[in-house]
Amino acid sequence: MMNILNKILKRYGDIYHPHKQVMESLKINKYLYIVLILIVIEGLLGQYMLYLNKDIWGIIFLLFYGMTIAIGSIFHFKYVEKKFGSLEEFDLEKMNKFVKLVDQEVKIDLTNKEQNQIINQMILEKLERENIKEQKKRAFTGGIFTVLLIPILLPFIIENNQDILILTVIIMLVGIAIIFFSFKSILKDYSLKYKLERISDMLKEILIFSLRDKSL
């Protein structure tokens, strides 16, 4: 069963992975290449001017950098709306691609009510397990902080109260290590949880659209 879920997650990545979406956007709108080139040039020039201590020019180029991103994003959304009718139609087309991929590669028809609900139940169970894992990781991180940090710091606190610098550095290093590993775990969990939550929402949308079409 988990193998089926993993295959569906891969099919989701085939359509909705950030790299795939960027490449699809470039394929739809060739003008984005010009926008990307401008963004790179302005960003590099801004950093270079700041490096040369030409702060005013650096700020100007970085402002242009931000404006190009904002204007380019608005232009792209308008272009997509013009080509597909609306952003909703564009999202619907991608969702249909996802349904077809799952049907072809996993042999599951997400427009079928029974199959759709079974997959959604699997996703919800996976989400519940991920939430339990996240709670355990938080408890583990808190335990490491308590068990390791306090014994390391006590000798410095008791024997030599003047070594504030050493004490501060140790606290900082341990804190950075904890934040780094926690942040890394959170990002990984968030990515998986986000995909599972998004797929669950999509399954409901797919079922609604399929039931609506059958009733027409």
Results as ranks from 00 to 15, higher is better:
Met1Cys: 06
Met1Glu: 14
Met1Ala: 11
Ile4Gln: 13
Ile4Ala: 06
Lys7Asn: 11
Leu9Val: 02
Tyr16Cys: 01
Pro18Ala: 06
His19Glu: 10
Lys20Pro: 08
Lys20Asn: 09
Lys20Val: 03
Met23Cys: 08
Glu24Leu: 00
Leu26Phe: 14
Leu26Gln: 15
Ile28Asp: 15
Leu32Trp: 03
Val35Pro: 02
Ile37Glu: 10
Ile37Gln: 10
Ile37Lys: 13
Leu38Lys: 11
Ile39Thr: 06
Leu45Glu: 05
Gly46Glu: 03
Met49Asn: 08
Leu50Gly: 06
Ile56Lys: 14
Ile59Met: 09
Phe61Ala: 08
Phe61Gly: 04
Leu62His: 06
Leu63Lys: 10
Gly66Ala: 03
Gly66Ser: 04
Met67Thr: 00
Ser73Arg: 00
Ile74Asn: 06
Ile74Glu: 05
Ile74Pro: 02
Phe75Ser: 12
His76Val: 05
Lys78Thr: 08
Lys78Trp: 13
Tyr79Ala: 07
Glu81Tyr: 00
Lys82Gln: 13
Gly85His: 04
Gly85Gln: 03
Leu87Gly: 12
Lys94Glu: 08
Met95Thr: 09
Lys97Trp: 00
Phe98Asp: 03
Val102Lys: 04
Val106Gln: 11
Ile108Trp: 14
Leu110Met: 09
Met122Asn: 06
Met122Thr: 02
Glu128Asp: 15
Arg129Val: 12
Asn131Met: 14
Glu134Asn: 13
Gln135Ser: 10
Gln135Phe: 03
Lys137Asp: 08
Arg138Gln: 09
Arg138Glu: 06
Ala139Asp: 08
Thr146Arg: 05
Ile152Phe: 07
Phe156Ser: 15
Asn160Met: 04
Leu167Asn: 10
Thr168Lys: 01
Ile171Arg: 13
Met172Pro: 02
Leu173Ile: 12
Ile176Leu: 14
Phe180Trp: 11
Phe181Val: 00
Ser185His: 09
Lys188Gln: 09
Asp189Ile: 00
Asp189Leu: 00
Ser191His: 13
Ser191Glu: 14
Leu192Pro: 04
Lys193Val: 05
Lys195Arg: 14
Arg198Ala: 12
Arg198Gln: 14
Met202Asn: 10
Leu203Trp: 07
Leu203Asp: 09
Lys204Ala: 12
Lys204Gly: 13
Glu205Pro: 04
Leu207Arg: 12
Ser210Thr: 02
Leu211Val: 08
Asp213Ile: 13
